[in-house]
Write a protein that binds this DNA or RNA. Sequence first.
RNA 1: GUCCCCGUAGCUCAACGGAUAGAGCGGUAGCCUCCUAAGCUACAUAUAUGGGUUCAAUUCCCAUCGGGGACACCA
Length: 562
Amino acid sequence: MIEKIKKILNEVLNDSGFFQVKDFEVKEPPPNINFEFSTNLPILISKKYNVLLEDVYNKIENSINNNYKNIFIEINFTSPGFLNFNLDRNFYYEELKKIFFEKEEYPCLDKYKNKKVLVEFISANPTGPLHIGHGRCAVLGDVLSNILKKMGCEVYKEYYINDRGRQIDILTASVVEVIILENLSEVEEEVFSWCRKVLVDSKYKGEYIKEISVEISKIFKKITLNEIEKIKTKIVELIMDNIKNTLKRMGIDFDSYLNETELYKSGLNQKIKNLLQEFGLIEEKEGALWVKAKNLGDEKDRVIIKSDGEPTYFFSDIIYHYYKIMRNYNWLINIWGTDHHGYVERLRGTVELISKKLEKEVKLDIILYQLVSLITKNQRVSMSTREGRFISLDEVLDEVGSDVTRFFLLTKSPNTHLDFDLELAKEHSLKNPVYYTQYAHTRCVGILKEASNLEPNFSIEQYIDDFRDYISNLDKTSYEFKLVKTLCVYSNVLEKCIENFSPHYLCNYLIDLSKIFHKFYETTRVISSNKIDFCRLLLVVASKIILKNSLSLLNIQAPEKM
RNA sequence: GUCCCCGUAGCUCAACGGAUAGAGCGGUAGCCUCCUAAGCUACAUAUAUGGGUUCAAUUCCCAUCGGGGACACCA
């Protein structure tokens, strides 16, 4: 609805001879201003055109009085240059009507209808279970994908698995070492020295390593160096099964899981090498192959093939993004932890280069979210999979469930540094704001159920005309009208989430909406002495739709009963 | 040493540069003959510090202090 108002204000602007003012705001004024909406247009105009505020006020007022009196039924100007206004109630009515008729589909948006977007998120190395930090990335990617779909995008969710390279070697050796120590399987002599070599610097220490060792030893009665590749594959498979299971518990499913090894099998690596060569970006130095990343906006050049012949992560990523673009996605969204921030420019340059080469228009957005720290005994500790120092997502899900976990992670902007205290989370879980919003939904359901008992044949169409009158007669200070107003701005909240790549606006909106609904519930009877106020009932119907739609975007249950 | 985030109430977090800085948890005091009290009402408590830009700064710029992260032929 805000968009609609802005459009009309733009007409008013043209009408009064001010064309060039953009980025003005339309929002609710503070409570001491007794108007429905306000805009900072006058002061912006006054600045831009260097005219007196008084003149601006006059021109706007004239324009509104002459041509828009039926929309802005009441206006006033306040210092230092705000225009406050009340809208014709039909505005609200029309929006609510859309809610009634579009129901689960509301709001039907087609803002990005030609966008084919690939959202890559989590992509955690398959070296251990997901922890609470990955959970943050998981819900962020999941909900953004949901909202993007709502906006009309074709969305494809992908999890990229680094199933090769040094980390996987270390992981495998860590597992094999346990097999050796616990004497779980027969182990070939050569494997001993391989382990020693690989584990020279560090190893994986988590409890889960033991479990995997047992599994592996069941499958491989004898561990031989020849079979080490097979063992690696199996370990990755076991860990990915665990990860997928955790994701399933949170209601997240990917359209694809892409293995790094697949990329190399496809032969794309040679193609990329040629491509880089063609652009004169490759250089051999100190026995390694370097890409002149400086030319791609990076601060220094980077190795893509190490002197031992192994490709680096960066090289894989070039291949991967080539593959993304090749598949005709025109909007790439990557969600990374801020520990990758130094990597952004490198990739941006790469994608630019590739899209130029393939003559495709590609938009790349890299969303960085702050890492999650762990609080134990009032001490902050950063999580580490390798050290086995983390709280697994499964553990959190066991304790508080998916809804609470999701809401906890989503209410905060990705930019905030999150401190997670499991003890506190458990303690507060019953008082979690997610129940507050779910309860608002159940209250809607309760009223509707009661109403349908009394009036089984009730239909919205039957009362929609009465509802129009009801809306136009509402006292603007009533909770009913506040509820109407809040319902009407829902679609703007979704846009804000996408503009800022942050679903926390939706969470906050949901809490606001629930708050107003609860107040409405406490102060305003819909059914009393077996009599239904049908207009209020319609308001409940609309509230229920919006509550449910928001919760479903967040992938949180909207229970009928609590 | 260089770069990126962050610093708001006792705690966890909000606030596209806007008017009297909001929620939840925790604390205190009230509210169920009436659509579910997982709710409502009232009270108390906050912008790290010092400058600047602006009609307007929690928000932008600079400095200081404090916390997290990144600066590999790791992933």
